[in-house]
Computed example of a mutant assay.
Amino acid sequence: MKLDAPVPGGPCWAELGTSDLEAARRFYGELFGWRSETDSRQEAGGYTVAHLGDAAAAALSPLYQESRPVAWSVSFAVSDADVTARLIEEAGGKVLVGPMDVFDAGRFVVALDPGGAAFQLWQARAFPGAGVFNAPGSLGWVELMSRDPGRAETFYTTVFGWTVRPSEHYTQWGVGGVDFGGMVTMDDKFPPEVPPHWLPYFAVADVDAGAATAERAGGTALMEPTSLPDGPRIAVLRDPQGAMFGVYRAGDEG
């Protein structure tokens, strides 16, 4: 994405809920070079922050509820989580968790958009979110998979005030015209059991090498490395526990 720091309305964090925290640490450490540190406080529940150098890059956590799927989630920065939570409800979404304080780090919300795609809000206090974007191993793009793109566009522009740059096949989201993500319409190619969702993309130096590393480490390539017309080289992968995520060639963001 063209954003290089958390800004209100933009993505600020990606977080994996996994059924095997230690296996996830090994997999993503091998793939992205992450150094993981688990919060030792009992009330943190095993929450683990992955770093690139000294910068926080993403989080890994155990599944806190058995019904929760193994999946990546995306957080968007807001200046007031309570106000934004009310906007979500008024715009046809649903707040599932919060607003709630997370120690002194910030204020947190989990919500669904009208199509059922989950996302999170983060009102920063001591912790602003990711300290690195777009570099290999860090968050660089976020993509909404939606079965009702018109309704999704209305919802997200109402809640966050995003700018929209549509084309024939793809819609790009932005903050003040600076793009950070996009939207794909879920057509008949998507099995009906796949729900609408947000998909984070992480930058890598080499998409083909990254996909090969993921497969050697027990992951699966759901979409083999592909160069998009007038766009980046990307792949969509699944980790050994089943979480989907994308990778793209660093320098191709936006």
Results as ranks from 00 to 15, higher is better:
Arg107Met: 06
Ala91Gly: 02
Arg68Gln: 12
Ser73Cys: 08
Phe76Lys: 06
Pro128Tyr: 13
Ala126Phe: 08
Thr84Arg: 05
Pro128Asn: 10
Ala81Lys: 13
Gln123Lys: 13
Asp82Pro: 00
Gly140Tyr: 01
Val132Ala: 15
Gly92Ser: 04
Leu63Met: 13
Leu121Arg: 14
Val97Tyr: 02
Val70Ser: 11
Leu63Tyr: 04
Met100Asn: 00
Phe76Ala: 03
Phe133Asp: 04
Gly98Phe: 05
Gly129His: 11
Glu66Trp: 02
Val109Pro: 01
Glu89Cys: 04
Leu60Gly: 00
Ser138Val: 00
Ala111Ile: 06
Ala117Arg: 06
Thr84Lys: 08
Ala85Lys: 11
Gly131Ala: 13
Asp104Trp: 08
Ala130Gln: 09
Ser79His: 12
Gly106Asn: 08
Phe127Asn: 11
Thr84Ser: 13
Lys94Asn: 02
Asp113Met: 03
Gly137Cys: 04
Gly137Val: 06
Gln120Asp: 11
Phe119Leu: 14
Ala105Phe: 09
Lys94Trp: 00
Ala111Leu: 07
Leu87Ser: 08
Phe133Glu: 02
Ala105Asn: 07
Glu90Asn: 10
Pro69Glu: 12
Ser61Lys: 03
Thr84Val: 15
Val74Gln: 13
Ala111Gln: 11
Phe119Ser: 11
Arg107Glu: 01
Leu87Pro: 00
Pro114Leu: 04
Phe76Asp: 05
Pro99Leu: 10
Gln65Arg: 12
Phe119His: 08
Gly98Ile: 08
Leu87Asp: 08
Val70Asn: 14
Asp82Asn: 04
Val78Thr: 14
Trp122Met: 12
Phe127Gly: 02
Thr84Pro: 05
Ala59Met: 08
Gln120Glu: 15
Ser73Asn: 15
Pro114Arg: 04
Ala58Val: 06
Ala59Leu: 09
Leu121Met: 09
Asp113Thr: 02
Val78Ala: 10
Val83Ser: 13
Gln65Ala: 12
Leu112Phe: 09
Leu112Met: 03
Ala118Trp: 01
Asp113His: 02
Ser67Thr: 06
Gly116Met: 06
Ala130His: 14
Val109Arg: 10
Leu63Asp: 05
Ala117Lys: 05
Pro128Val: 13
Gly92Ala: 06
Pro62Lys: 01
Pro62Asn: 00
Pro136Ser: 09
Val110Phe: 07
Asp101Phe: 06
Val74His: 11
Phe76Val: 14
Gly93Gln: 05
Asn134Met: 02
